[in-house]
Amino acid sequence: MSASPLPIAPDLLRAVRDSCLEAGEIAVALFRPGAMTAARTWSKSGGSPVTEADIGVDTFLRIRLSVLMPEAAWLSEETVDDELRLSRRFVWVVDPIDGTRAFMNGSPDWAVCVALLDEGKPILGVVHAPACNATYTALLGGGAQRNGVTIAASLKTSLAAARIAGPKPMLDALARLETFEPTEKIPSLALRLVRIADGTIDAGLVSPDARDWDIAAADLVLSEAGGTLTGGTGQPVIYNRETPVHGMLVASSASLAAPLMSALQRMRDGQSQRI
Results as ranks from 00 to 15, higher is better:
E119H: 10
P182I: 01
P169L: 00
A111S: 15
K156C: 10
L189F: 03
K185M: 06
L174N: 05
K185Q: 08
L189K: 07
P130W: 14
A115Q: 06
T157R: 07
V127K: 03
G141D: 14
A197K: 11
D172A: 11
I151E: 04
A134T: 02
L155R: 12
I123E: 00
P182R: 02
T157N: 06
L191F: 11
A129L: 10
A162I: 01
A129Q: 09
P169Q: 01
G141I: 15
F180N: 08
V114F: 00
A129H: 10
F180M: 05
P187D: 11
I186Y: 02
E181C: 00
K156S: 11
T157V: 09
V194R: 00
V112W: 04
V112T: 14
M170H: 11
E178R: 08
L174S: 05
T137Y: 09
A138T: 14
V149R: 00
A190E: 03
F180K: 10
G106C: 13
G148M: 03
L191T: 09
E119L: 10
V112A: 08
F180P: 13
S188T: 02
I186D: 00
V194Q: 00
N133E: 09
L116W: 03
G142V: 12
E181N: 06
G143V: 13
A138N: 09
D172Y: 05
V127Y: 09
R192V: 07
A131H: 15
A161Q: 02
T150L: 01
G125E: 08
G141K: 14
V114K: 00
L171C: 01
L124C: 13
A153S: 13
K121G: 11
A197I: 15
S107Q: 13
